[in-house]
């Protein structure tokens, strides 16, 4: 039971990361290689805002941290689009992908320079919600992670299916030229895509920092998010959710049942198998995949 809860909690974090990667890919056909760095920088911003005035998190400082991190990450997504990605519209998508690699390097350097590479934790929800007889426990952060992920995916589903902007987004993703001819503001759509994606990355970063800790090394979770997105299908939000859970399950089950040293390797083995069998991912659309 404890193992299942852990898989669900970590899988939720990976699913949120994968969702951001999928949103950007759906909107612009760009794979964002800076997603892990965006997640951890967002979490560091959250930590800095939360501990700005004291050494413990109070209700007020927690609220401040949420507002600051949410606003900063959403705005940063817009800035990335207008400062970097907008100039690359119409260029080969690999150029934009290379730019995201550069962005990843710069963001990681920012962690070193601004936060001094210091390892920090985000002490939220570590208290036990339920203790198992054998010694394990379910903590609040496990439940918060799962519920936050579920709420985020529900909000995204409502946005894409029921709102006018969401329908325009889907239209622009399917055929940007036609959408532009029908007066859809492509720049607005893409800016929103980056904004939502960076926001979801920061959310995933905060949840991850609450369950584990933050350091420059934590940016490696971006690789797990990307693996989840590729396994699930780069243009499928449903695939992102399933992919996140699969990667988390593969990591945990390998560590517990096979060998801890192979735990980080097996998800990539699954990726290789899925890519060989279904290059478009488990839930991806065959004809739309144009890999970098």
């Amino acid at each position: 039971m404890e193992l299942l809860v852990s898989i669900l909690a970590l899988g939720s974090t990976y699913a949120l990361l994968a969702a951001g990667i999928v949103i950007i890919y759906k909107a612009s056909r760009v794979i964002n290689f800076a997603h892990g760095e965006l997640a951890i920088v967002g979490a560091y911003v959250f930590h800095s805002a939360g501990f700005l005035t004291g050494t413990t998190l109070t209700a007020l400082s927690l609220f401040t941290a949420i507002v600051v991190a949410a606003t900063a990450s959403a705005l940063f997504g817009v800035v990335i689009y207008f400062a970097l990605m907008r100039r690359l519209l119409g260029r080969p998508t690999f150029v934009a992908a290379m730019v995201t690699i550069g962005l990843a390097i710069i963001l990681k350097a920012a962690i070193v320079v601004i936060w001094n590479s210091r390892s920090v934790g985000i002490p939220i929800g570590r208290q036990a919600l339920y203790n198992f007889a054998g010694g394990g426990r379910i903590s609040w952060i496990d439940v918060i992670s799962v519920l936050t992920c579920a709420a985020a995916f529900a909000a995204l589903a409502i946005f894409f299916q029921l709102t006018r902007l969401g329908r325009q987004f889907r239209g622009a993703a399917e055929n940007p030229l036609l959408a532009a001819q029908r007066q859809v503001n492509i720049n607005l759509i893409l800016a929103i895509a980056w904004s939502v994606a960076v926001f979801s990355a920061a959310l995933a970063g905060v949840l991850f920092g609450s369950r584990s800790m933050l350091s420059p090394q934590s940016t490696i979770i971006g690789l797990s998010g990307l693996t989840a997105a590729l396994v699930g299908g780069l243009d499928s939000l449903r695939g992102a959710a399933i992919g996140g859970l699969l990667v988390a399950a593969a990591t945990y089950l390998t560590a517990r049942l096979i060998s801890p040293t192979l735990a980080e390797t097996v998800p990539f083995l699954i990726l290789l198998i899925v890519m060989s069998w279904r290059p478009w991912g488990l839930f991806g659309t065959v004809e739309e995949i144009n890999r970098v």
Binding site: S212, Q217, S218, Y252, P260
Partner: peptide, 17 residues
């Protein structure tokens, strides 16, 4: 033992516990 580039320690901690 866990890989050097590990970010989430939960499965290893559960194994140790």
């Amino acid at each position: 033992l866990f890989p050097v580039r590990t970010a989430d320690f939960t499965p290893f901690a559960q194994t140790a516990a």
